[in-house]
Amino acid sequence: MTEEPYRWLEAIGNRREYISEQMKGATPVFAVSRPEGILLFGVGIGHSKVFEIYDRHGFAALGHPVDIEKLRQAAIEAAHVEGFNRSAKDVTLRRLISFALSTTLKNSFEQIFSPPLIVESIFAELGESPAHDVLVRVRYDGNHHYETSGVVVAASDRKREDEAAAWLRANLKTDDSVTRVAGLCLVVWQALADGKNLAELLPPDVLPTSVAGKTVEAALLDRKLPGAVQYRLLELK
């Protein structure tokens, strides 16, 4: 198959279709940079979607739970080896993603005789202020981009993902509490799950804190936590 370029391209195209099909039904995850820290948010059914990676680093992902786990383990291993061999300050997303994670994802995607990693993800690195926060949207094929607006959404549909991020940017106020930001994430999560038109969506007076039958996960990379570890889980209720 691989001796002919066309066949290889066809195989790659098939893999994209396969991944797209597998991702249908996966619900989005969010990362929002705020004065208090970086909020990571997701809604799951049994499997977690929001994780701690290192002292100042978090991760949120959707996709196949086993593949999320593979990517999470790779990130944790790379971060801890780097932090041990050098220092915690040397653990940066730019290096983790460029040299450890995106190459792993790209190799996995292009090795057409083995199954690809079905995972869409967001990585977050806490800085001293929101201007120094780093948010990275990492795609299943290793492609990634650094988001400077302070809001990142990862969803199975790119158009809906962009719409959700735009809605959040338009509806977030500078003095919103982290709990309110999480509530707004849940509003837009529900709208995406229900297939609603986000152009007509208005923030409700009372923000939801839960979804029937599902687990709402929120974590904060907290700028004010004493000590090295900045990650903590948030209770929304």
Partner: peptide, 16 residues
């Protein structure tokens, strides 16, 4: 001490 610090945190994060 440094080895144990990293080991304990690595275990907590990787094993949840």
């Amino acid at each position: 001490g440094r080895t144990l610090q990293t080991s304990f945190e690595f275990y907590r994060r990787s094993q949840l």
